[in-house]
Amino acid sequence: MKNRLRVLRAEKNWTQAQLAEIVGVSRQAIIAVENGKYDPALPLAFKLARAFGKNVEEVFVWEVDPLQDGSL
């Protein structure tokens, strides 16, 4: 799953620590999500999206549509 976290954070001029503070997680969590190493659970994904005033789909992008590739 790809995400636009780094771009959105840069637009807001927030540091990773500031974003971590806003959504209530550790900075390591933000680093891991930004680097695509960790896909957050729904509550954190929603919090991250809300922090930027976006919907989840505007922040997180499923690379392959699960409805089209037959996995669902």
Partner: peptide
């Protein structure tokens, strides 16, 4: 912008 609940923890106190 959406109002988020007050964070329970942050980068600094993530290690209790």
């Amino acid at each position: 912008m959406f109002k988020l609940p007050r964070p329970k923890m942050n980068g600094r106190n993530s290690v209790q």
